[in-house]
Each structure stands twice: as structure tokens, then as C-alpha cells.
Amino acid sequence: MKKKITFLLNSETRSIEVESGDILLDVLRDKLGIKTPKIGCDMGDCGSCTVMLDGKTVKSCLVLALEVEGQEVTTLEGLMKDGMTPLQQTFHDFNSFQCGFCTPGMVLSATELINKNPKPNRKEIQEALSGNLCRCTGYIPIIEAVEDLIGKGKGEGKEKG
């Protein structure tokens, strides 16, 4: 069953025809050219496909495209309209990625955390990122980048960088 959906994608109104079985992640990547959400497990376990739906992170591999009718989808592209966000810059300074596959999801999850709780402690950061798997960094540089951004870090990354 084909249906047309209209939704806000990174503050722009988009309309597109989708099948009932189309998944949001695939529609974003293959039909709308939005490539920061990545296809990892495709089953809701890894977080690499994370996007924001009405301001809350969701796993876009578990959302039907039809479900976002009338809603607002934000991806990293949307946050970067004026260049890299401060959080991305800190990721850069702290070498918080190697292959980068997990990074867009990590950045969105950390962004949601800081929006809700501007001064999270380490445990809260770990908890907020626990749905995003990283197979390269061992997580420490990621957590340190978030701590640095909120002013709780040791600032080491910046000196090194």
C-alpha cells in the first residue's frame, strides 16, 4: 500500500511517497539523501541509526516511515546547519571516534541528555549513552568529551588537540 507522508525533516517540510513496510531509516538514507543515521544491527540494539523524533531520540530502524506523518525528524545534518556543533568539536578534540560509525548516534543521544539535564554526572552520561554501541573507542574518550563540554572534564583533550 503506497501512501504519501509529509513531515518536517531538519526544519524543512518534506513530502514523499512510501510503502507501508518502509522503515524510516531506509527512507532517510535511500530516498532523502540523509546519510548520518547508519544501518548497524537494524534491530534496535546498537543505536547507530538514532534520530530525534519531536525532540526525543529514537532508533529509526524501529520506526515505520508512515508513523512520522506530521512529526518533526531531526538528524545530525539538522543540528549542523551552522557548521559543527560544540559537542562535535569536543568529540574531535578528544579523539572520541575512530571509524565514526557510532558517532552521529552518540552525538544525538548526548545532545538529548544535555538538553534535559545540563550537568549530568558520569553515571548519568554512561546511562544515557548505553543504547549506543561503539566498537572502536572503548567509550572513555566519548564520555570525557561530554564531560568536557559541560565543564566537568579535565580539559586534557583540548590541550592535546
Binding site: 500500500m1 513496510g21 518502509d22 515505520l64 508512515l66
Partner: peptide, 12 residues
Amino acid sequence: MSILQDFDYFKP
């Protein structure tokens, strides 16, 4: 991966 099963979607 999209869903192979063809279904009708309703949002009452």
C-alpha cells in the same frame, strides 16, 4: 531493511 509483508496501515 524494509518489511516484506504487505499490510494496510491505519491510524484511527
